[in-house]
Design a binder for these strands. Structure first.
Length: 270
DNA sequence: TAAGTATGTTAAG
DNA sequence: TTAACCTACTTAC
């Protein structure tokens, strides 16, 4: 379930599990041939920028670059040598833990220049305290594209995916189709600030929860509500169902090749 | 068994 | 703008 929070959490998990240890590295599926070059090396650190993961090893400048794509995932098991199930592109293992990577769009060993080239084309990451928010704000203010498209443009904001964009726009009652240039700068900064909070929470709890306490069903004596993807949300994939705030049916439409979800009543142009 | 779906990106047209 | 790609799981037949 890979939006930016997933990758940052993964970086923490990989560093926590394997950091400072020599690891075994292999590609059971065979498609990551460079895996063998890392076998026996010490994993120094894993880091994330947006939806990209980088894994560094002792004694080489090269890093493994992983992009999970739509359905790539790591799975951790506390076993030294579990049987391989399915298509395992990359297996990392210590004496006691094995991490298997399946279905990534990218899993490759890159030179420092190649790593830098990827980082250079990524925009501000809400999960990076050093992120250049002003640069992102300028790009948004200069664009005629809908804010819903801009939020997912990784060159502007790195790490936001389809769930966070729908949810953060709902939380701020913004019409997804408002052009970036028509958005007040203070509104964009409020969106950004909310993304910092929401995605930080996503890293901590490992899923996307965006519903404010006052809209929690628990507060009204109803059972907790968790959507298919495992989090609690206002509009994402809730098309046809009543808005949690006003009861209007949530709408969906394909925008820029992705499914957009919004409440036509709560999110009106103002 | 087959088809459809998914929190993404890239390259071709 | 569309298709292609990587995988696992759910739903339809």
């Amino acid at each position: 379930m890979p939006e930016g929070h997933t990758l940052h959490r993964l970086a923490l998990d990989l560093t926590g599990t394997f950091g400072g240890k020599s690891v075994r590295s292999s590609s059971p599926q065979g498609r990551f041939t460079a895996a063998a070059l890392l076998d026996g090396r010490e994993l120094t650190e894993a880091t994330a920028h947006g939806k990209h993961l980088f894994v560094a090893f002792d004694g080489t400048e090269q890093q493994v670059h992983v992009h999970l794509g739509l359905y790539g995932a790591f799975s951790f098991v506390e076993q030294a040598d579990p049987p391989v199930v399915g298509q395992v592109r990359w297996r990392l293992a210590s004496d006691s833990v094995t991490a298997d990577l399946r279905g990534p769009t990218a899993c490759e060993l890159l030179t420092p220049d190649e790593v830098e080239a990827i980082r250079a084309r990524l925009g501000a990451d809400p999960l990076d305290p050093e992120a250049d928010v002003e640069r992102a704000a300028r790009a948004v203010a200069a664009s005629r594209a809908p804010i819903a498209t801009l939020l997912m443009d990784q060159r502007i904001i790195a790490g936001v995916g389809n769930v966070y964009r729908a949810e953060v726009l709902f939380r701020h009652r913004i019409d997804p189709k408002v052009p970036g240039r028509d958005l007040r700068p203070s509104t964009f900064l409020a969106l950004w600030s909310d993304l910092v909070d929401l995605m930080g929470e996503g890293v901590r709890i490992g899923r996307i929860d965006t519903v404010r306490p006052e809209h929690e069903p628990d507060a009204m004596g109803r059972p907790p509500r968790v959507d298919d993807h495992g989090g609690e949300v206002y509009v994402y994939r809730r098309d046809g169902q009543p808005c949690h705030v006003c009861g209007t049916r949530v709408r969906t439409e394909v925008l820029g090749g992705r499914n957009l979800f919004w409440c036509p009543r709560c999110q009106r142009r103002r």
